[in-house]
Design a protein around this nucleic acid. Structure first.
Lengths: 217, 217
DNA sequence: ACGGTATGTATTGCATGCAAAGTATGTCAA
DNA sequence: TTGACATACTTTGCATGCAATACATACCGT
């Protein structure tokens, strides 16, 4: 979705966005242009440009002096998860609809099942980072299967915004046990081409995820 | 939502975003830094920064040389309206839920009815610009009544993205006759505190709007 | 000793400079 | 007249310079 235009401003933006959604910076931490410029080996100008974009993304917020890494209050997290639940519900619904219309490649549907397996395996390793990554990969795949670039981009924004201050608590035994079942419900509904079932399964899943959410800030 | 940080880069960004969603530039038109800088009375630097943000907003797209105003293909418009329908459905649903919970000020609900009246009046004048503005004001009010800043911001992004290349075809007699009825259905459901009815009314309304959509590009 | 003020320093924000890249134009030849 | 090539110009992209601002620190007065 995001075009990789030659030029380091774009590269800086993507690098910073990745770092932020990887949790490389603590919420509330100040980011200075100079430090980032030195770190990335460019001048302040492309860094400034990138920071401007991060501001509109909401990943950093203006401070008295420069910007600080955004934090999520419990209320904000609540709001974000409400939005996310609806968007992921729509994605699952659209994916199921495409499947019903025969516009979803069989390989793509199989890939969803594989992704569910990989999340399950990752959760078993009790590696929170790998689990979160596998989980996100599955959700991304569903988002892609919806076939709507704008929905997909919006989902990415929401995921990144949540990820800045969240660590997916996939190590919680209760949640770990439920997650695969819920994932299977979504993918099964998509495979069956049942949009309504897919929507409600996805919505329930995200609402369950919200309850397992653990803020970092 | 968008903080008005002192500094002209922010001002330039907001000015350009407003111009774009007002349709001041034709889709496909090239925007040069120098011309915009001269026009806005600033140097190229803040303009560059603003253009970077517009790129992530999708309001302009990278061209061989600089950027051009984004256009919407029929397929893209379709995708955008699908997303919009779901987001507005969620907004209406949340607003109705807040009303049911007594968390919506009576004045806010009354304002929704007033906004419906104003759209009706504006449509009668056959002024497409005023009609579009009144219509957008109503939808914005519903978005605000949902009480979810992230949903609200996402809606704004979608509206702006559509507005760049759309003129609301509120002059269409058929559509003009139906629009007020549909608006009333949404607002009534919100007033009644019926989330499901509000959701379905809003969804139907946007799907009807999609059919009345007329691209400019 | 404590508070207020003044100075110094770190950092932002915008403007400008300079090099690279690509496009348009003009000229020459067939 | 048309096509190809060379040249000049427009425009971007990044780096740096300079002024403004706010914070920290140190000094002085009470």
């Amino acid at each position: 979705m995001t075009d990789v235009q030659p030029g380091s401003a774009q590269a800086v933006y993507m690098a910073l966005r990745r770092r932020l959604s990887d949790g490389a910076y603590a919420p509330g931490q100040r980011l200075t242009e100079m430090a980032l410029a030195a770190d990335l080996g460019v001048s302040r100008t492309p860094v400034r440009e990138a920071i401007g974009r991060l501001l509109t993304d909401g990943l950093v917020v203006p401070a008295v002096r420069g910007v600080v890494v955004a934090a999520l209050s419990p209320t904000e997290a609540e709001h974000l998860f409400v939005l996310r639940a609806d968007l992921e519900a729509l994605a699952a619904e659209l994916a199921a609809g495409r499947q019903a219309a025969g516009r979803l490649a069989p390989a793509e549907v199989d890939a969803l099942d594989d992704a569910v397996d990989e999340v399950e395996a990752a959760v078993r390793t009790h590696d929170p980072r790998a689990s979160a990554q596998a989980n996100l990969a599955l959700h991304r795949a569903i988002g892609a299967a919806a076939g709507n670039p704008f929905l997909e981009e919006t989902l990415h924004r929401v995921w990144d915004r949540i990820a800045v201050t969240t660590v997916a608590n996939l190590d919680d035994p209760h949640w770990a046990g439920a997650i695969t079942e819920q994932h299977r419900a979504i993918v099964s509904a998509i495979r069956a081409g049942d949009p309504e079932a897919a929507r409600s399964a996805a919505k329930s899943h995200i609402e369950a995820a919200r309850r397992a959410y653990k803020p970092l800030g």
